[in-house]
Amino acid sequence: MKVDFYTSQREYNEKRVQFDNAIQAVVQKGNFILGEPVVEFEKAIQEYTGAKYAIGVASGTDALILASDILGFKNGKEVITSPFTFLASASCIIRHQGKPVFVDIDEDTFSIDVNKIEERVNENTVGILPIHLFNQMADMDKIMDIANRHDLRVLEDAAEAFGMRWKGNESDYRHSGCIGDFGVYSFFPTKTLGGYGDGGMIVTNNDELARLAKSYRVHGAAKKYHYDFIGYNSRLDTLQAAVLSVKLKYIDEAIKKREEVAKLYIERLSECEEIKIPKIKGDQKHVYYVFNVLAQNRDGLAEHLKKNEIGYSIYYPRPLHMQKAFEYLGYKEGDFPVAEKVSKEIIALPIYPEITKEEVEFVCETIKNFYRK
């Protein structure tokens, strides 16, 4: 049985008429740049997340770059973040000549270890960039407490966290990205809310930050051909907004199906001693964007899955502090032992709303067969 790590075709075939009609409407109208579907989608994101403002941009990476620039994560200033993440979570700081300062991760959640953040704060620190990674949000109570006590800005990398909500010490749940100064989402096709190409979103509850983000995405213009800043050319494509608007209508259903798939994995793999399943920590509503496990002999298991035509991914095979592009920061192997250990054991299994029970059970049985050898 061939099991894809991800496929868009099943969802498209289920909702083909809706997707085709949405795309055709944009083509017929011909307003491809910041057209009405973008405005409508931004409003829908505001309503779904509770954010006061939502500003569509070309990608999640661009969202991080714009937000970092606006928040002053630049010119030698330090921003505390995790080394166990995608490149963009740190490169957005470096692009503005800022300095990412890494702290290790929690082995149970793979999120930044919030108990290690404050020891890295100094007079040159301007911000914290937590990444809500894989299944759950970072501990935003502790992060915001540190930020408030040290007058730091917080940029939530919620690229993988659409639909996740944190309650913590508050009276109600708050959507990822809506707790710090800025939050960002990615609409890369594999994401929980994914388009048919690149796309991203910046959210904030701050009037001035929203004004700046709207300006920065169109070259820094307050109005056409009137430039207050040197900004960027980064706008959410109207066609992508149309596709995403269709998908947003079904997002809660998609999240529920992901939960069902994850529960099946947990049930089937719970007695496999060689597999460790991450824990959910904190009072929050998690979303299974991916299903990661820690596996003994990870590379051997990966090869076994490949031979059996089962898709997988490794997020991430090498922490950022060990990447050649970050050598100049002066970190060395052993500086972040948890991140380094996890990078050698982690593997992501197929999970998406349209995957079948039979496919999941085949994946689990294939994994167990590998360890029975």
Rank of each mutant, 00 (worst) to 15 (best):
T85F: 05
N115H: 12
D145A: 14
F134V: 14
I93K: 00
M137N: 02
I128W: 01
K116F: 03
R153Y: 13
S111N: 15
N148F: 04
F102I: 10
N124D: 12
D139R: 10
I55V: 05
H96A: 09
V57S: 01
M137P: 04
D104S: 09
T109H: 08
T61N: 14
P100F: 08
M144Y: 02
I93G: 02
D145V: 07
L87Q: 15
S59R: 01
D108G: 06
Y53S: 05
E119M: 12
F84N: 09
T109Y: 06
F134D: 10
L129E: 00
N122P: 01
I55A: 00
F110V: 12
K52I: 02
H132L: 06
A54W: 09
I94A: 13
G60S: 00
I94Q: 07
L133I: 14
S89V: 12
P130A: 11
S68R: 05
L71S: 01
D106A: 10
D108S: 11
I143S: 01
A63V: 02
D62P: 00
K99Q: 12
N148H: 07
R95F: 05
R149W: 00
T81C: 14
I128A: 08
A138M: 08
D69L: 07
A67G: 14
F102K: 13
I105A: 11
H132K: 11
V79I: 15
K52Y: 02
S91V: 10
